[in-house]
Write a protein that binds this DNA or RNA. Structure first.
Lengths: 351, 351
DNA sequence: TTATATATGCTCATATTGAGCATTGCAACC
DNA sequence: GGTTGCAATGCTCAATATGAGCATATATAA
């Protein structure tokens, strides 16, 4: 490949005919199919959920996946409008808050089985929605995201699966001797386990969802690794894979989405995309904790939220809270027009 | 489009022959070309620079662009390895730190002129590199990024172009009356100008580089708008476009890159990707200021950097600083193995 | 009526941050 | 050789922000 690649686009547009060979090469080797993938997230009853569609099982037996569809530039001017349009068609859901997550180009080796099949590039999106908007779904259902990532669920304290399965098996993998003659690893496996899973003095960082999933994938402990990589034959995997698997690379996209939400609510007021119009401060706190883990001091949380000007009292109260009635609040949309609108700036890593 | 889009990928792999019409439709309408675009950033002599290649002029007269090439899945397993490989071929540069920025699907209307041309989706990448690594570039040269965004250069105080040209023309655009019968705007133009450009009591947020560029694009004040949108004829644009233009959507990608670097150095130690092995704390501060703007308190900056454990003294000193000799420091790589490695946590928005 | 549970207001010790003064040590100049 | 200028470095102090807990208010349920 010695052609001047960065001039190709110019030649295809500028109409310089003598460059057509380059253009043919490009179409031949460079054409791919774009898949738009949506991690559509809500919180219902203090349970964070994602919209999941169930299809025929893949090679690993996974039936669940995220809603997705191709990007058809003929029909949609932008990627995001394409996504909104087919989520609306498929699920009957009008997305509100949408943000792009990441573009994944490698789908694991299974995608290269058929050399003539077009390569697929997945663009992952995060959408946040309210339970009110959840009616009339044509297909798909809402699943707790912790079903796919049980080690991420710290709402009842440290999840037992960590010490029961995840860490022992990761340690075995980390201490497995290297093949003789293999190059030394730039970062030790034990260090990677320590940083990702917060052991040996390191802290658990709830935002490292993707890093943890990818480490488990590399260690062959999740179903997708079994499916994608020949060295992990079913025989080699005598124990249960960790968490429910998903088709394609959808669990990776969901992991990216969870990590992004966890990071973003701390510095942008996106938590309110998940709340009904009116709510009590404790309901707001419970929603934050459903996403981050339950480590918030109640009084300080209200001080934080109120002093940042994120909410205003409606004047109403909610009774039947189990105790004293709670004032109702609504999101102060004006903060979006003020200084860089803050999120609920709860400190990361207080676990 | 009422087909079940999210099953298509399954059918193309699972081999359900009766679905081939859907597959044909997809290939016909859904195939695109992937362009990998690199914003390769360095800081030389306290000037933040990006690698720019110069080609034939486009419709707006722009000759500068970012290095880019197509993604050829046949040759490269991942998007990032594709990027690294052709940056190496084209520019003779071995990239170190690379991170994906954003995937842009709409290139403005000029891309739809030729209906048979494949649609291009641009995946933007940010790469950080050192001046030492800058030798032996086969093509391209380093340009100050403020050449393309003069309103972002606060190193000598508030840039004059803001009050001299940018804001007057934006205000004229914001106050221009709407066409009768047009739907009311969800956010007022004046509010958008206020938030993006920090006027009327709002604060200048140095991270909103992309938002500012896109507002100027929408207002028809940058060359690319002239090129892409028929309503901005050259006749309608009697004044100079703002900043140097770039080909395709490359200035948008560079804007994304600048905003990302400015945000990221505050919470991850990526600034050291731009530093030589040994440096004084003031050199480090100057590099941060080249990127963010010059608003750092020298003593507090050292306290911050040293107490975060980001650096360690080498034991050497640098003389000829103009005053007392300065201790030399190096990056403590170990922080990457400690708690979530922090950046230089200078507060945003102190301007 | 009392027990109980939550809502909410308030205090206080501690950590972090912003700003400035004081001192040190090389280099250039007389 | 001393003096002066300049940047490096050390240190203080007030203002805020943060983490934790005590105290009180007001519902519902037994």
């Amino acid at each position: 490949m010695s052609i001047e690649m960065h001039t190709q686009r110019a030649s295809s547009r500028g109409g310089d005919p003598k460059r057509s060979p380059a253009r043919d090469l490009r179409i031949d080797a460079g054409t791919v199919e774009i898949g738009l993938n949506a991690a559509i997230v809500a919180v219902a009853d203090n349970e964070p959920v994602a919209l999941v569609v169930r299809e025929e099982a893949d090679a690993s037996g996974a039936t669940d996946g995220l809603p997705f569809g191709p990007f058809t530039p003929r029909d949609h001017r932008t990627l995001e409008s394409g996504l909104r349009s087919w989520v609306n068609e498929q699920a009957g859901l009008d997305l509100g808050y949408v943000e792009q997550l990441y573009t994944f180009g490698d789908r694991g080796r299974h995608a290269e089985d058929d050399d003539t099949a077009p390569h697929v590039v997945s663009i992952g999106y995060l959408a946040l929605t309210r339970v009110n908007d959840m009616r009339e779904l044509q297909r798909g259902s809402w699943h707790s995201w912790y079903q796919y990532f049980p080690w991420e669920d710290w709402r009842k304290g440290r999840p037992p699966i960590l010490d029961g399965a995840v860490l022992p098996r990761l340690r075995e993998w980390a201490e497995r001797p290297q093949r003789p003659g293999a190059p030394p690893r730039p970062i030790l496996r034990t260090d990677r386990v320590r940083i990702c899973f917060g052991v040996d003095g390191a802290m658990w960082d709830e935002e490292k969802v993707l890093e943890r999933y990818e480490l488990l994938y590399e260690a062959g402990l999740v179903g997708e690794a079994l499916r994608d990589r020949p060295e992990f034959t079913p025989a080699a995997m005598t124990e249960e894979p960790l968490g429910s698997g998903m088709r394609f690379d959808h669990r990776r996209i969901l992991a990216t989405a969870i990590g992004r939400v966890r990071a973003k609510i701390k510095y942008r007021p996106v938590i309110f995309e998940l709340m009904p119009d009116e709510f009590t401060l404790f309901e707001l706190q419970r929603t934050v904790e459903a996403i981050l883990g339950p480590h918030l001091h109640k009084q300080n949380f209200r001080r934080l939220v109120e002093s940042a000007g994120l909410v205003e009292a409606t004047g109403e109260v909610r009774t039947r809270t189990g105790g004293r009635p709670a004032k109702l609040f609504r999101f102060r949309r004006e903060v979006l027009l003020e200084r860089p609108a803050p999120g609920v700036r709860v400190k990361a890593n207080r676990i």
